[in-house]
Simulated assay, not measured.
Amino acid sequence: MHFIELLPTAWVWVVIVLVMLSSCELGYQLGYLGFRNKEEGDGSSSLGPMVGGLLGMLGFVLAFSFSMAAGQHQTRKENVLLEANVIGTAYLRTDLLPEAAAGEVRDLLRRYVETRLRAAEDKVVFGEEMEAIQRSSVVIHEALWHQVVSVAKQESSPTVALMVQATNELIDMHEQRATGSYYNRIPTSVWIALLVICALTMMTLGTQVGMTGRRRLSAVVPLSLAFSLLVTLIVDLDRPQRGLIQVDQHAMYNLYEGMGGDLEALISTQ
């Protein structure tokens, strides 16, 4: 669904509104054609149960999609706090290393937090630029691991082992957060089903309205706007770094400031 990712949130809402109104208009034209050709009876009443069933199905899919997106958004928020705690623990355990190595590891950890914050504020969600962001974190992982392992080989002790453990947890946490941010998304099949059910529901509703011979824009337009707003909210929740609803990074900002980083300079460059 990369074409959705490329659209700003406001445009996503506009596109969905147009799709729903177009589907309704198509259904209206079909229903009105039937109204002009019918000789007796009210065919619109037979579509009532079908419209109700489709609206119920649409509501179910919307609730399912919203629950999925909200759960993933909550997981991303928790991962930010977990990563801040893991990096903070590693930073504190640098006191267990020899002073020469400790200073180098602290600088690497500070650079790593800065890289993670820049990645979190970046609006790129896929493609080569995202891969470049991930590679910059991996480069620091390798440097950190090299420093810690070098000390462990020279001085095997329980205190150094704690630092090795903290570094390993930091690397694992990066993969966990990257997976939650970039890959744990609503599946494409769910998006397709949601859009198809939206279009079919509005088409059937338009057919029912058309068979009465009168437009009911006062009811159809608000319904389309409301459903489009719900779908747009789900799209926004499913975007980890774009849109109106974003994952709060205050835990990482506080950590960076506690490490002695220049927070104002970092924010000004983002």
Score class of each variant (00 low, 15 high):
168 N>L: 09
202 M>H: 15
204 T>P: 02
222 P>T: 04
183 Y>S: 08
170 L>K: 09
171 I>N: 03
212 T>A: 13
172 D>R: 10
178 A>D: 03
203 M>D: 03
183 Y>N: 01
226 A>H: 13
185 R>P: 00
222 P>D: 04
230 L>I: 04
196 V>A: 13
219 A>R: 15
180 G>L: 07
214 R>L: 12
221 V>H: 04
202 M>D: 13
197 I>V: 07
160 V>P: 07
211 M>W: 01
204 T>K: 02
184 N>Q: 14
225 L>K: 12
168 N>R: 10
171 I>V: 15
196 V>E: 11
166 A>W: 07
163 M>E: 04
187 P>E: 08
181 S>Q: 11
199 A>T: 09
156 S>Q: 11
226 A>K: 14
186 I>E: 01
230 L>M: 06
213 G>K: 02
163 M>Y: 03
183 Y>H: 07
217 L>P: 01
203 M>Y: 01
212 T>M: 15
216 R>V: 14
209 V>S: 00
214 R>M: 14
205 L>Q: 01
173 M>G: 09
188 T>Q: 06
186 I>K: 02
189 S>F: 10
161 A>F: 00
205 L>K: 05
204 T>W: 09
188 T>N: 08
195 L>G: 12
162 L>M: 03
219 A>I: 09
155 E>R: 15
170 L>E: 01
182 Y>T: 10
231 V>S: 06
224 S>G: 08
160 V>G: 06
214 R>S: 08
200 L>R: 10
214 R>G: 08
164 V>Q: 06
198 C>K: 13
192 I>Q: 00
